[in-house]
Simulated scan of single mutants.
Amino acid sequence: MSEKLSTALSVAQKQINQMLTMQDAMNSRVSESWRSNGYEWYRAIWVECAEMLDHHGRKWWKHQEIDIAQVQLELVDIFHFGLSLRLMTGDSVDYISSKLAKELHQGTGENDFKIALENLASAAVTKKSFDAKALADCMSLMNMDLDELFRQYVGKNTLNFFRQDHGYKEGSYIKIWHGEEDNEVLANLVKTLDTGADDFQQQLYAALEAKYPSA
């Protein structure tokens, strides 16, 4: 293994390790017993794949533009579910992050987005598993590297915590903020903050709090 590749995998593993920790915290926020609740994470993956195809375009009988930003957001959502599935194996966070770093770096080289997406959905349907290599193919074809995945994941994870803290599970959460969906508000706020800051997540949460309609 070259020194450059070794360094890249080390950085990737550190980022994935952090995301696994954040995912465990988010799942525990929803339910402390999430590992034994029988949640169908695999089903959430293939449903997201179907939704993503609409944003990418599947209707050959009409003109469609690829909504890259929305497709990337769906990929981030899928990664949340994929991390949860991997955590369900009972393996250590370090082992999972090391394995995912390699799979996300490798991909399979598939150059047709729809096929790559179908591979991702197929693994979820037939094996109830998360195909990280297929996700890597989808990311590559949408100009999304691991740094961008990490940036968007931290943002969405923070929004998910914010939702839970403001009545999402109880049904009282407000999703449209002054005419914009909260995902859009999130995307705009992230652009104004330093994603490399140690307290980025805390800054983002405070910014969401300031923008929330009921605040």
Rank of each mutant, 00 (worst) to 15 (best):
A207C: 06
H178E: 13
L149H: 05
Q13T: 13
E51C: 07
S214M: 12
Q70L: 14
A101C: 06
D182G: 08
A124W: 07
I174Q: 14
A134T: 06
D145W: 02
L120I: 07
T21Y: 09
F81Y: 10
Q202T: 13
D112M: 08
A206V: 09
L104D: 02
L9F: 00
R163T: 09
T126W: 08
E110W: 01
L204R: 06
T21R: 12
S122W: 05
K102W: 02
L87V: 05
E32Y: 07
A116W: 06
Q164P: 00
R29G: 04
L20M: 10
L5Q: 14
L159Q: 03
D77R: 04
E103A: 15
A116R: 05
E40Q: 14
Q70H: 07
Q106E: 15
V71G: 07
L100H: 08
L53D: 08
E40S: 14
A210V: 10
A50R: 09
K114M: 12
H55R: 14
I115C: 02
E180F: 11
W177L: 05
K156R: 12
A134R: 02
H80Y: 09
Y95P: 00
G171T: 07
K128L: 09
W177Q: 01
D54W: 11
Y153P: 01
G167W: 07
S140R: 15
D77S: 03
E184M: 11
D112A: 11
N183W: 06
G155V: 04
